[in-house]
Design a protein around this nucleic acid. Structure first.
Length: 599
RNA sequence: GGCCUCAUAGUUCAAGGGAUAGAAUAGAAGUUUCCUAAACUUUAGAUCCAGGUUCGAGUCCUGGUGAGGCCA
C-alpha cells in the first residue's frame, strides 16, 4: 500500500471516529515547497459532508493522524489545508523497496484489451516533413507510454499509396525521368519521387498559364490542363488493374518505402503492422448496406447515403455517393472494422492525426458507435496543432516545408558545433563523437516537440530550437551523463547489496532535505506514467523528467556524494543517483529519446 | 455564415477546481581546492476583456476581442 492509500484510509477512519460521518473521497496534493510538510490533505471538499470551520476540522484530523498513524510525524494547518510531515523512515523504506526493481514505475503485466496506435500515415508522393515529425514522435511516444502502463499495443500506419497524387509523380517520371532510379542518382527514393511531383506541378502550372493566356477561364483551365487529364486517366488505368501502370506504381512506391524506412530508422521509430490504402480504399461499402438496414443511415432520392447527426449537435454527413463510390468516411469505417478483424484483441484505437481533422474523427467515432461496435467506445483522436514556421505556414507549393531528413541532419550538426566549442569530447573517436552528436541533436528535437501540449500549435524556429540550456533534451541528457560518471567512479558501491546500512541511516541521522525531496520526486513516477497514459500525453512525462532533473541538480550541488565520509551515507547517495538515472532513462525511453553514457 | 481549437512574464513552455500562478530563456548580481560550470544560488517580471457558477476560477459556464482550423 502506498502512502496515499494508507492516508486515505486513515483520514476516512478519522472522520468516522471524530464526526461519525462517511467520507466518500479524500483529496491530496504534494505540499507546496514554501510550507512545512510533505503531503497535503485538502479539507474544503469535506465541508459538503462535515459542517464546520475547515481549519478546525484540519486540526482535529491532524491530531488523530499524528496519534494513530506512525508514518505521520507531524502536521500543521493553514486555512483549509492540512499539511502532513511524513516520517523519514517511510521514505527510506520506500526507496529500499524500489531499489532493485529495474523497471520501476512500469506495469509488468498486460491488462485489458490491446490498443492499436496509428501514426505517420504519409502519402507516397512526397518525403516526410516537419509536420510528420510531430505526428510520428507523438504517436510513437504514446504507444510507448500505453505499453509501459500495461497495455498491449500495436503500432501501425496507413500508407496512402494510391490516388491522383502518386499518379502525378509517375507521369512526370515517365515523361522526364530518363529511367532515373535512386541507384543511378544516389537520391533517397522518397526524395526522387517527390522531385517528380514538383516537376509535375511545374508542368501543370505552365499548362494552365498557357490556357489562360489563350483566353480560357482559370477554373476551367485548372480542370482541363492536359497533364492533369493524363494523370486522371492513369488513375483510371490503375483502378482497372492495367499491368504497365501497376508495375510502375509498384516500382516507384518501393523506392518511397525504402526512403521512409531510412527516415524512420534515423528517428528511432517502428511499426508492428502496416496498412496500405490500396488494400483498404474499397472497404466500408458493405457496412453502409448493413447500416441502412439497421436504420443508422438513410438513402436520399438521388441514391446517396447519409447519416443524420443533428441530434448530436453535428450535421448531416454523406457516407456513400449517389454513384455508389466511397468517400473518405466510408473507407475509414471499413478500415477500422478490418483492423479489429485482423487483431481481435483490440479494444480501442488511437489515431494520431492533425487537428484539421477533428470534425472528421468526431463523426467517424460517432458512426462507429451507432453501428454498435463495442470497441467504438475506446477510440481516441490524438489531435495535434500545426507546426508553424516564423515565416508562416508550411506550404509544399512554395517550398517552405522543412524536410524531416534535413532537419535531423541540421540538429545533429548543431549539436556537433556546440559540443566542439565546449571541447569536452576530445578523447573520443570520430565515430563515437558522431553517434553522440546524433543522440544529442535528436534528443533536442524530440524533447522540444514532445514537451508541448499536443493540442497547441508550435512555432518552430529551426535556428533557435536547438537550445542546450534550460528545459531542453540536451540539458537532461547532460545530467544523465553526469550521473553515469558518478556511478563509474563508485562502481564498488553500486553493486553493494546489503541494505542493512540504509536502514541504520534513519537511526544514525535524519534524511537530508535534498535526499528527501529527491525520493519524493522519484515516488511520483508511477502515477505520472498512469496519468500520461490516461491522457495520451507525452508532455506530462517530459515535464516530470525535467522536474526530476532539476531536483537532482539541486541535490548534486548541495550535497557531497563521493566525498561523504560516512560509508553508509555514501552508498545511499550513490544508489540514489543510480535510481534517478534509471528513471531518467525510463522516462526518456517513453519519449523515444536516447541517453548518453557520457557527454 | 455555422462549428471546433488556442490565448499565461519581453520570449518559449508549466499549472489534475485549491494556498503567495511555477520553470526556462533574455536582463541584473553571485558561486568552481569536491563527484562533468552544458551546473548551481539570488533578483525583477504574467493569467486578452466583461459578466456568472463556487468556500475557492488561469482552469467550469455565457458574451466579446484576437489567432488558427473545419464545413459549405
Amino acid at each position: 500500500m502506498n502512502i496515499k492509500e494508507l492516508l486515505e484510509k486513515s483520514v476516512k477512519e478519522a472522520v468516522t471516529s471524530i464526526f461519525q460521518k462517511d467520507l466518500p473521497a479524500v483529496e491530496f496534493q504534494p505540499t507546496r515547497k514554501d510550507f512545512e510538510g510533505d503531503i497535503t490533505v485538502v479539507v474544503f471538499p469535506m465541508l459538503r459532508v462535515l459542517k464546520g470551520n475547515p481549519a478546525q476540522i484540519g486540526t482535529q484530523l491532524g491530531e488523530y493522524l499524528q496519534e494513530e498513524v506512525p508514518e505521520v510525524a507531524n502536521f500543521n494547518v493553514v486555512k483549509g489545508f492540512l499539511n502532513l510531515s511524513i516520517a523519514d523512515s517511510y521514505y527510506v523504506d520506500f526507496f529500499m523497496s524500489i531499489l532493485d526493481k529495474t523497471d520501476y514505475g512500469f506495469v509488468d503485466q498486460e491488462t485489458g484489451d490491446a490498443v492499436m496506435v496509428e501514426y505517420s500515415s504519409p502519402n507516397t508522393n512526397k518525403p516526410l516533413h516537419l509536420g510528420h515529425v510531430r505526428n510520428i514522435l507523438l504517436g510513437y511516444s504514446v504507444a510507448q507510454i500505453l505499453k509501459a502502463a500495461g497495455k498491449k499495443v500495436y503500432k501501425t500506419q496507413i500508407i496512402n499509396d494510391r490516388g491522383i497524387h502518386i499518379c502525378k509523380s509517375m507521369l512526370a517520371w515517365q515523361r522526364f525521368g530518363n529511367g532515373e532510379t535512386p541507384e543511378t542518382t544516389g537520391l533517397k527514393g522518397d526524395k526522387l519521387v517527390g522531385n517528380y511531383y514538383v516537376k509535375f506541378n511545374e508542368l501543370y502550372g505552365a499548362e494552365v498559364q498557357d490556357l489562360v493566356s489563350g483566353g480560357m477561364d482559370k477554373k476551367r483551365a485548372e480542370k482541363e490542363a492536359p497533364s492533369l487529364l493524363e494523370a486522371q486517366e492513369m488513375l483510371r488505368k490503375w483502378e482497372s488493374g492495367d499491368t504497365k501502370v501497376v508495375a510502375l506504381w509498384r516500382k516507384m512506391n518501393a523506392w518511397v518505402y525504402a526512403g521512409f524506412d531510412t527516415t524512420y530508422q534515423n528517428m528511432g521509430v517502428d511499426f508492428d503492422t502496416l496498412y496500405h490504402e490500396s488494400d483498404t480504399y474499397l472497404l466500408g461499402k458493405d457496412v453502409v448496406e448493413d447500416g441502412l438496414q439497421k436504420g443508422v443511415f438513410h438513402r436520399k432520392e438521388d441514391g446517396s447515403v447519409w447519416i443524420d447527426l443533428t441530434d448530436e449537435g453535428l450535421d448531416e454527413k454523406i457516407v456513400l455517393r449517389a454513384d455508389g463510390t466511397a468517400v473518405y468516411m466510408t473507407q475509414d469505417i471499413g478500415t477500422a472494422i478490418q483492423r479489429v478483424t485482423d487483431y481481435p484483441d483490440i479494444g480501442g484505437m488511437v489515431y494520431t492525426v492533425g487537428n484539421e481533422q477533428d470534425y472528421h474523427f468526431k463523426v467517424l467515432f460517432l458512426i462507429l458507435k451507432k453501428l454498435g461496435f463495442s470497441w467504438a467506445e475506446n477510440l481516441y483522436h490524438l489531435s495535434y496543432g500545426m507546426v508553424d514556421l516564423p515565416s508562416g505556414k508550411m506550404k509544399s507549393r512554395e517550398g517552405t516545408v522543412v524536410d524531416a531528413d534535413d532537419l535531423m541532419d541540421e540538429m545533429t550538426r548543431t549539436a556537433e558545433t556546440i559540443s566542439k566549442e565546449l571541447g569536452k569530447l576530445d578523447e573520443y573517436t570520430e565515430s563515437e563523437k558522431q553517434a553522440l552528436y546524433k543522440i544529442i541533436g535528436l534528443g533536442a528535437l524530440k524533447y522540444y516537440i514532445l514537451k508541448v501540449d499536443p493540442k497547441k500549435r508550435i512555432l518552430f524556429n529551426p535556428g533557435e530550437s536547438v537550445d542546450f540550456q534550460g528545459n531542453t533534451g540536451p540539458f537532461i541528457q547532460y545530467t544523465y551523463a553526469r550521473i553515469e560518471s558518478i556511478l563509474r567512479k563508485a562502481k564498488d558501491l553500486v553493486g553493494f547489496q546489503n541494505l542493512q546500512g540504509f536502514q541504520n541511516l534513519v537511526g544514525l541521522a535524519d534524511l537530508h532535505p535534498k535526499e528527501k525531496e529527491l525520493i519524493k520526486q522519484i515516488q511520483l513516477f508511477p502515477e505520472t506514467l498512469q496519468w500520461a497514459a490516461e491522457n495520451y500525453s507525452p508532455a506530462l512525462i517530459a515535464n516530470y523528467v525535467y522536474d526530476l532533473v532539476k531536483e537532482f541538480n539541486s541535490f548534486y550541488q548541495q550535497v557531497t556524494i563521493l566525498g561523504e565520509p560516512d560509508e553508509d551515507r555514501k552508498r545511499f547517495r550513490v544508489r540514489l543517483c543510480q535510481k534517478v538515472g534509471e528513471v531518467i532513462r525510463s522516462g526518456f525511453g517513453l519519449l523515444g529519446i536516447q541517453v548518453p553514457e557520457r557527454m
